[in-house]
Amino acid sequence: PKTFKVQVITMDAEMEFSCEMKWKGKDLFDLVCRTLGLRETWFFGLQYTIKGVCAWLKMEKKVLEQEIPKEDPVKFHFLAKFYPEKVEEELLQEITQHLFFLQVKKQILDEEIYCSPEVTVLLASYAVQAKYGDYDPAFHKPGFLAQDELLPKRVLKQYQMTVHMWEEKITAWYAEHRGIARDEAEMNYLKIAQDLAMYGVNYFSIEQNKNHTDLLLGVDAKGIHVYSIDNRFSPNKSFEWSAIRNISYSEKELTIKPLDKKAEVFKFFSSQLKVNKLILQLCIGNHDLFMKRRRVDSIEIQQMKAQAKEEKARKKMEH
């Protein structure tokens, strides 16, 4: 059969695949997951950018029938599209945890997620533990972190501290983590990161109908939030998934109807129809996971949980 080339970039690898012309998004996605040995597939997606807007490959539609960039090979980023409500309960496989760790770490370093200087130092110390193992002063000599990107540039600029001083600060915490294995260090990182206000939120610029006030809409694991343009930390208004009746769009307008019929219907405009489609897609996916978490675990999840528990116990013994 005729094929076309696809390049898939994960947080720590690049892979190339030959896809059959007739393949649906799901065929490619499943192949990537199998190649990675990833079973907790529901958090992830294949992302691409088209005309400056980020989009996710649809599973049920043919790859070539989607509005993907015309390039050879076609480039996709394999990324977490949805986030768990509690990392320690939901991320079971080590590979899943590792991919989340890498993605969230990049978001923090790139300042897409705001993090206070104190917490960035603590997070950096866990990242160092994950990479270098236990601290050994005989081996980890001053300057050993010189090549690592560990803190956001904003934090580095904010203080009059030398690279050496930062390294000392991080190492003081790092030395405290002795005995923590790589997967544990990455999980500790995620447990702290998930409490940051901007963690796991997809933000969109929106305009409100009447007075044209610019606002931000945030979609995350718990629901939909509305923020002022200058405050991404605390929403002015929140709609939990369980309190929403219906979400719909028509062209650039999007409507959220609360379950409570007396409550005000929230209407706004996004910049493009394409963005509304993406917002609704994220709402459906997040709501689906929200419902799944509140049901009895499937057999597959039960098995994976049991396996993860066994694996953890085995590792602890080894360690």
Partner: peptide, 22 residues
């Protein structure tokens, strides 16, 4: 529970989605 009436319209009923999964 997800309905696309035309290419520029879409609607998702969270209530129906919940009912169908119970």
């Amino acid at each position: 529970y997800f309905a696309r009436k035309a290419n520029h319209k879409g609607s998702y009923s969270l209530v129906d989605a919940l009912k169908s999964k119970v």
